[in-house]
């Protein structure tokens, strides 16, 4: 069970809602993923265009917790504004703080992320900052009182998987709040690996929405996250350099 602030969730998969090939595929993928937390972006309405169906408006909001992000923000001030707009919907009080500091790598700005998180905590938000895999930054954010840490596995949408498992492990080991690996997940093995490292959850979007078959991939991710978590809880064996026989050496049949 995943616990963020005072909320509990059965699923450890948090799913993004961007870039699906169609509305129908998206609905189905969300459903089979069994995710309970869905992320959204906050944007101007396209009031001058023919109105498109809006995914969030089709959702049974009793079944899902909304996790709006502050994507697009480059400063703490912009992130706080977006977060407040999201909260004014009356639909959510959780926020994924995402302040991008580099347009090419889409890596987060640690200073602005810290500032935004601090202000949003003061405003009473449940704050989940998306961060780089910096252990000290994670500590500083925890000291502020954030409700979860969301370090990236690799750059957003890159699908490169976990490029620094050691750092993620350090963050997980020292964290007193849930650690959700966010961004960069490419395939089910990455998601399982994150969970085996001890992550409390995984947030992904592109890995499902841009897969050839997003619905099938949503199931795969769900299962990978469950398998990874079970593996972590079961406790893996230590690695050895040489072979250790699985069959008994005694009682060999000799001539």
């Amino acid at each position: 069970m995943l616990k963020i602030a005072d909320r509990t969730f059965q699923s450890r998969l948090l799913l993004g809602t961007g870039k699906y090939p169609s509305f129908e595929v998206q609905k189905k993928a969300v459903e089979v993923s069994e995710s309970e937390i869905l992320t959204f972006a906050v944007r101007r309405m396209d009031i001058f265009e023919e109105s498109q169906p809006n995914f969030l408006e089709q959702l049974d909001l009793n079944r899902y917790t909304l996790l709006p992000n502050t994507a697009g923000a480059k400063t703490a001030e912009e992130a706080v504004r977006i977060a407040k707009l999201a909260k004014a919907s009356g639909l959510c009080d959780m926020i994924k703080v995402e302040v991008i500091g580099c347009d090419k790598s889409l890596l987060p700005d640690p200073v602005e992320t810290l500032k935004a998180s601090e202000q949003l905590l003061e405003e009473g938000f449940i704050v989940l900052p998306y961060t780089s895999d910096d252990v000290v930054l994670a500590k500083r954010l925890e000291q502020l009182g954030v409700h979860a840490i969301m370090p990236g596995a690799s750059p957003i949408g890159s699908g490169k998987g976990i490029i620094n498992p050691l750092n993620l492990q350090f963050i997980i080991e020292q964290s007193t709040v849930p650690v959700i690996v966010d961004a960069g997940i490419g395939s089910p093995k990455d998601a399982a690996y994150a969970m085996e490292l001890g992550a409390d959850g995984v947030l992904l979007n592109t890995a499902v929405s841009n897969a050839n078959d997003p619905v099938k991939m949503a199931i795969a991710m769900k299962l990978a996250i469950e398998a990874g978590r079970l593996g972590y809880e079961a406790g893996r064996i230590a690695e050895k350099n040489y072979g250790v026989a699985s069959s008994p050496l005694a009682g060999m049949i000799t001539s």
Binding site: G16, T17, T39, F40, R44, F55, L56, N69
Partner: peptide, 27 residues
């Protein structure tokens, strides 16, 4: 940011900068 209760009473005036915001797909 206006609260829903204010929609009916808040009077718009010339040159107001109004934003109509919603949730879209995102990660």
């Amino acid at each position: 940011i206006l609260q829903k209760e204010q929609y009916q009473t808040h009077l718009l005036k010339d040159s107001d900068r109004v934003e109509l915001i919603h949730f879209v797909g995102g990660g």
